[in-house]
């Protein structure tokens, strides 16, 4: 079986029912990645969100998958459309690092923790349990989700890849 790497870019999501697909996020920092997998339906998906919530409705062309609270329901819906069932979904939560101490002291960039909290809140509201996580810290991470078996891995600079789920 030939693995097919599919990059989930910043502010985007991918849902897949192709068992060859390996969804990957490179260099995840303060953003948050929510991996969902339905092992029975063999459907997986990743949301790569930048911000916990949309601060202003004036952002008319704002892509909803930039935001945790708007993006996660879209990911769940996309996975349901591919045959997944929410009650069977397993969640893995990654990211939310504090990459820099912002030079001007403005805390708006230190949003990693808020991103993680927002993801936890939305997952709880949807009754989705978090089975694995790699959150916080000060380093970037590369995350992979294997659609075939739901295996989620994390790798940081200079470290070996670790299996989360």
């Amino acid at each position: 079986m030939a693995e097919k790497l599919r990059t989930v870019s910043i502010g985007n999501m991918i849902a897949s029912a192709d068992p060859n697909d390996v969804l990957v996020v490179y260099g995840l920092g303060s953003c948050v990645v929510i991996c969902l997998h339905d092992p029975l339906a063999q459907v997986g998906g990743i949301l790569h969100a930048l911000l916990p919530t949309q601060a202003s409705k004036n952002n008319a062309d704002g892509h909803p998958t930039k935001f945790v609270d708007q993006g996660l329901p879209l990911l769940i819906d996309s996975m349901i459309a591919l045959g997944a069932t929410p009650i069977q979904m397993v969640a893995t939560l990654c990211g939310g690092a504090q990459m820099i101490t912002r030079p001007d002291g403005n805390d708006i960039l230190n949003i990693g923790e808020r991103n993680v909290r927002a993801a936890e809140k939305v997952l709880k509201a949807r009754r989705l349990k978090i089975r694995g996580r790699a959150t916080g810290g000060h380093s970037g991470r590369t995350i992979k989700l294997h659609v075939a078996n739901g295996r989620a891995t994390v790798k940081t600079l200079g470290q070996k890849q670790q299996i989360l789920v």
Binding site: Y26, G27, L50, K66, M99, I100, L109
Partner: peptide, 27 residues
């Protein structure tokens, strides 16, 4: 200008800082 902050990490992580700082306003 502010004092500088130095990051040593993956290139994607460095670029993400730029993306995060504008994401609330624009895509």
């Amino acid at each position: 200008l502010s004092p500088p902050a130095v990051m040593i990490d993956m290139l994607a992580s460095v670029l993400e800082v730029a993306a995060t700082s504008v994401a609330a306003i624009t895509d």
